[in-house]
Design a binder for these strands. Structure first.
Lengths: 134, 134
DNA sequence: GTAAATGCAAATTGTTTGCTTACTG
DNA sequence: CAGTAAGCAAACAATTTGCATTTAC
């Protein structure tokens, strides 16, 4: 039941990955972030990017977005917010929404027997660009 | 702008895939459904299952659940409802919830410029079983 | 008869892992 | 210096695709 204590090190790679993810407003895939990080550390490896994204999300520093179908995306902003995803170009944008969803937790726990600890809400549609070219 | 008209055929495979998916209350992955369908059509191929699930979801007969991270799941029930997913065993259950989310569509369209056509809401946590063995 | 759909296998894509070397604390 | 993390490449897993054959209409 005890939390595993892990001695972690602050490597240049880890720092830059976190930094760069925080900078971008988009929600990059591992490969996209890899390209960004490569500009600072040319010989960084994709594996390192994956490993650090996993590490950082476990640690709660970033968010792993398992919502979009094809590829996983990552979000440097960890406060509660929701997403809109374009079905055509797959881009993801943030939205804030003061909804009553939080208060439904208890209701759902009672109904389902689950211990609820989070939720994701995703709207889908076509973004400004894609709805024109459609 | 015209809808592409597609001549489709009612193959035994397609029928059974649709039927069996409608029967199960779970939200099977392609591989799981493949095993189920194999009981009726022993030499069906996994590729056919994938192709038909794609076809049927494009046609609106079933739902493709792109919500869970690891593997895609499919849902035979297409009326609006939401999901709870266990983070440990990855099982997905339905919940009904009369929420105000629908009414937020317009608001989001205005704010984001997206043309919204759907949404998914997923709660995550531990199911009855997993929360004990944890 | 024709073209849509199947079965099979190979190809792709995204992600993880094993292992040796490098570097943080 | 101890052991975490990097780099690289190979392995894996899920899904897609190419092609010859079958089958629905």
């Amino acid at each position: 039941m005890e939390t595993k204590i892990r001695k972690s090190r602050n490597t240049r790679q880890r720092q830059i990955i976190l930094e760069e993810l925080a900078k971008v407003k988009t929600h990059p895939t591992a490969a996209e972030l890899y390209e960004i990080v490569r500009k600072k550390i040319p010989n960084v490896s994709l594996g390192t990017v994956y490993r650090n994204l996993e590490f950082l999300s476990e640690r709660g520093n970033i968010l792993k977005l398992d919502i979009a179908g094809k590829q996983r995306r990552y979000d440097g902003c960890i406060s509660t917010h929701y997403h809109v995803r374009c079905k055509k170009c797959d881009k993801v944008a943030d939205i804030s929404l003061d909804s009553e969803i939080q208060s439904d937790f208890k209701k759902i726990e009672d109904k389902t027997g689950f211990k609820i600890d989070g939720h994701t809400l995703e709207f889908t549609g076509l973004c400004r660009n894609c709805k024109q070219n459609k």
